[in-house]
Computed example of a mutant assay.
Amino acid sequence: MTTDGAVALRAAVAVEDRLFRALAVVRTVVLAYTLAINAYRNNFDHPVAGWCCVGVMVAGTVGAVVVYAAPERRGPAVLLVDLALAVALLLATPVVKGEWFNATIPGYWITGALLAWAVRYGWRGGTVAAVVLGAVDLLIRADVAQKDWGNVFLLLLGGSMLGFASEQLKEMAAERDAAQRDAAAAAERARLARVVHDGVLQVLALVQRRGAEIGGQAAELGRLAGEQEETLRSLIRSQSSVSTASDGDVADLASALGRLADGTRVEVALPAGAVDLPVHHVDEITAAVSASVDNVRRHVGADARVWVLLEDLGGAVEVSVRDEGPGIAPGRLAEAEAGGRLGVAQSIRGRIEDLGGEARLDTGEHGTEWTFVVPRTGHS
């Protein structure tokens, strides 16, 4: 499951928990009212059967309150049993009270099942339950009065509206949780930026100055330190705020990768048309390719040639980054990761895997080739 999907699921469960706790109170109140009405009227043609039906309502209410309290038990089978019990009590009414009854045995008690369907399955579930209960209520009556049509209308209105409200509450909770997560991530990025600025950047600046002063090989070391300082500063600037791109925003991966070509050292082969992906996917794939190209320059040589190939596979995209260097020695990547040097693990593999994709490495005397396969509907 994606990160956003997990957040939305947790938010939906939290909303359902509160609504089902409120529904437990509603069920108890409605049961008390139904018991009082049946005791007051006591108009059963078959009293024993009638009070057995009342007992079923009591047991059903207790069972529903207990079962619905746990999110993992709110499955389709439980919801169907709840609705079937309400339908069975409606069907029992003409048998227990006689054909010309006025009010059904369960009365308003059936709204418990209706509201449970609305909370769990949204407006569609609420509407389906209302249609079933309303149809049964009308079919069992020998004479349908205007008030009966009105009751069915209220069932339909209540089920669909509460279901719609439940869906909106779940979406709002998911959006709130996502916003809180983004705010926390932004705060953490700001904290890390301060740490990097106060420590690493100052050291790199010092190495750059001292290297230039000493000259020789130290000058080359200073130049490299200067490049890394600028890279870190650019990274800090780019991460200083949370991206405002919405989930529906897309960008052209082909254009983004095309900007990496320099005409001599880096060659990029692209499809004829645009390759549209979510903005976050494009940013992360481009960053992984850039990290691969930087590794070639750093470990093979500044003049090493790199070939980047982008293919649109329909349901996924595939990007390969190839060089003709000496390859990576066996065990070198694992040794680097164990030593805390996580360039490949995080900058390359980590980015692709976070998108739900796969990063494959082929290396040897023939050179090194990274292949990134990212589904269009991966993590976000």
Rank of each mutant, 00 (worst) to 15 (best):
339 G>N: 11
377 T>F: 04
259 R>I: 07
349 R>G: 01
355 L>Q: 00
37 I>D: 14
79 L>I: 00
147 K>Q: 13
167 E>W: 00
113 A>F: 04
228 Q>R: 15
368 T>A: 05
38 N>V: 12
19 L>Q: 11
167 E>R: 00
336 A>H: 08
352 I>L: 11
288 A>V: 08
307 W>S: 13
14 A>V: 06
204 L>S: 02
111 T>W: 08
228 Q>N: 13
317 V>M: 09
76 P>K: 01
110 I>Q: 08
35 L>H: 02
92 A>Q: 07
299 H>L: 10
49 A>R: 01
327 G>Y: 10
30 V>A: 13
322 R>G: 00
179 A>I: 09
218 A>M: 12
136 V>F: 08
28 T>Q: 07
187 A>C: 05
274 A>C: 05
103 A>D: 15
55 G>T: 04
90 L>H: 05
195 V>H: 11
240 S>K: 14
127 T>M: 09
176 R>F: 15
378 G>C: 12
294 D>E: 14
185 A>Y: 09
98 G>E: 11
128 V>H: 00
201 L>Y: 03
341 R>Q: 09
156 L>G: 10
274 A>T: 13
199 G>P: 04
114 L>N: 02
15 V>T: 08
266 V>M: 12
82 D>M: 11
58 V>K: 08
220 E>C: 02
13 V>M: 03
86 A>E: 06
202 Q>H: 14
82 D>Y: 01
17 D>C: 01
293 V>E: 15
212 A>C: 01
67 V>N: 02
175 E>V: 10
141 R>N: 09
16 E>C: 10
280 H>D: 12
105 I>E: 05
339 G>E: 10
320 S>V: 01
330 P>C: 07
356 G>E: 03
227 E>A: 09
379 H>V: 15
209 R>E: 04
93 T>P: 05
6 A>M: 07
78 V>P: 01
258 G>D: 06
52 C>G: 10
355 L>K: 00
243 S>N: 11
250 V>N: 04
52 C>A: 15
66 V>C: 02
9 L>K: 08
223 R>H: 09
302 A>F: 05
59 A>R: 06
379 H>F: 14
94 P>Y: 11
128 V>I: 11
62 V>P: 09
365 E>Y: 04
14 A>Q: 12
86 A>R: 03
346 Q>C: 00
121 Y>M: 02
133 L>Q: 08
279 V>S: 07
240 S>D: 13
104 T>S: 15
61 T>Y: 12
227 E>R: 10
263 G>A: 11
20 F>L: 06
193 A>H: 12
288 A>W: 07
217 Q>C: 02
343 G>D: 06
335 E>K: 05
233 R>P: 01
219 A>V: 03
113 A>P: 02
74 R>Y: 07
201 L>R: 08
266 V>P: 07
205 A>Y: 07
347 S>A: 12
161 M>C: 12
154 L>R: 04
72 E>V: 15
79 L>A: 09
99 E>T: 06
